[in-house]
Design a protein around this nucleic acid. Structure first.
Lengths: 233, 233
DNA sequence: CGAGTCCTTGAAGGTGTTCAAATTACGTGG
DNA sequence: CCACGTAATTTGAACACCTTCAAGGACTCG
């Protein structure tokens, strides 16, 4: 069993709906390809077309480049998630691995091409695109309305939801991205992020160990700091 | 010919692809409905489901409510455009008319339900969702990286692209939204928006007349103020 | 163990916010 | 058609938060 077969098999089990026809699965198998990236490698695939990227192992960031210094991280991808990578539109997007990663790349056209009569692949594509839209809007709301404290607290809670691994100690998470990358995703500077870490440490909300291990000590306090919306109608 | 027929006819001509089957068109016609809204009316439809809303006349905003005071406008919709309105997820979204508007509302399920063998409706849905995703990401990048000046300059240029009407004087646009709504969409306060208007007026970039008429005097200067990315590789 | 990078901390400054008040625009009724 | 009342906008001043610039310290990799 090749590496690709294993990878595609995992994708099939975890993402593809059960009722897919063999023809659809075979076509997808033919169009998709595996990508093994080292830390900071950027995924190089045909930039004219949209792609869906399934993250099997590791972690990745989708970056939009602006001026030389400032860049914005549009999305993170963790194992089991799918990132939508736009093709050559107006802006320059890149998918970059945060740590050694195994990815399965699926050209969007292979999902959009006519597929059987129940259009299972199209349905998969639209479902993933809508998920991406929801995440992007949530992100935009965060960037438009929240303070630095709220952003980092929300970020940490989000990372705990998405990034907990079987081998991590409970309540503890390994952040695969640097402070700089956290800053670029929250629309802040690295110094502000660092200061927020320190203050939240001093408040007894979290504990850190090394550069990337974070333990949540006070879940309620952290949720409060993230500025949860009251459940009013 | 009823108002709905006219509205749906326009939608058919301007949005639906030519090769749609009559069955698809009829089903869509059966599921879609017209909505006539006065200024500040909010579109009330079943909030559990996603909807696509075609704006025929007027203008609308898609708002996310957070705490009582702060809200974020996620998208504007102008004639000819389609807004994706998410259903009952975690957040509270509302579609609200900025001025008297005619909308055509299409429940997402009526596009997602199996449709013929070429899945024309599904294709339409995915195309619109991807457009919405692109706009949302562009918006997130703006909110994460741009200054107040850049945001308002970019906003005005965007409005000129999307909102020019046949009866407007050239170089001049009617903004259907208040300063408050501009602020809520740019992630700023109303005072900051007003100050930026004043400064851009003093710089000779724009001219304003009344509350909603804006004339661009210096296109190049405004584009520069918007912080155009140099076309470097 | 050493070198380099990443992270933290400090101090000063800028940009946008908040609070408050004056002014302008617009719809309504006379 | 003009005057008035209300709401939106503009402006001012003080302040808060985040950024910038700068330097010291810690972690990780080879």
């Amino acid at each position: 069993m090749t590496a690709f077969s294993e990878l595609f098999g995992e994708f099939d089990r975890r993402v593809l709906p059960n009722h897919m026809t063999d023809a659809d699965i075979l076509r997808l198998r033919h169009e998709a390809f595996a990508l093994d990236l080292g830390a900071q490698d950027h995924a190089g695939f045909d930039n004219d077309e949209d792609h869906f990227v399934y993250v099997a192992k590791g972690a990745a960031k989708l970056v939009a480049y602006l001026s030389a210094s400032r860049e914005q991280i549009v999305a993170f991808g963790f194992p089991g998630e799918i990132i939508h990578v736009p093709g050559g539109g107006q802006r320059n997007f890149s998918l970059i691995a945060l740590e050694p990663s195994e990815l399965l790349v699926i050209p969007a056209n292979s999902l959009l091409a006519a597929s059987g009569q129940d259009c299972a692949l199209l349905r998969l594509a639209i479902e993933q695109t809508m998920l991406a839209l929801g995440r992007s809007r949530k992100n935009a709301i965060m960037l438009g309305t929240r303070s630095a404290r709220e952003r980092l607290a929300g970020f940490l809670l989000d990372m705990f939801e998405r990034g907990s691994r079987p081998d991590d100690p409970p309540e503890t998470i390994h952040l695969p991205m640097s402070r700089n990358e956290i800053a670029d995703s929250l629309g802040l500077t690295i110094e502000t992020v660092s200061r927020q870490f320190s203050e939240m440490r001093n408040l007894g909300l979290i504990e850190t160990s090394g550069r990337s291990l974070v333990t949540i000590l006070d879940w309620e306090g952290l949720a409060h700091a993230a500025g949860q919306m009251p459940v009013a109608a």
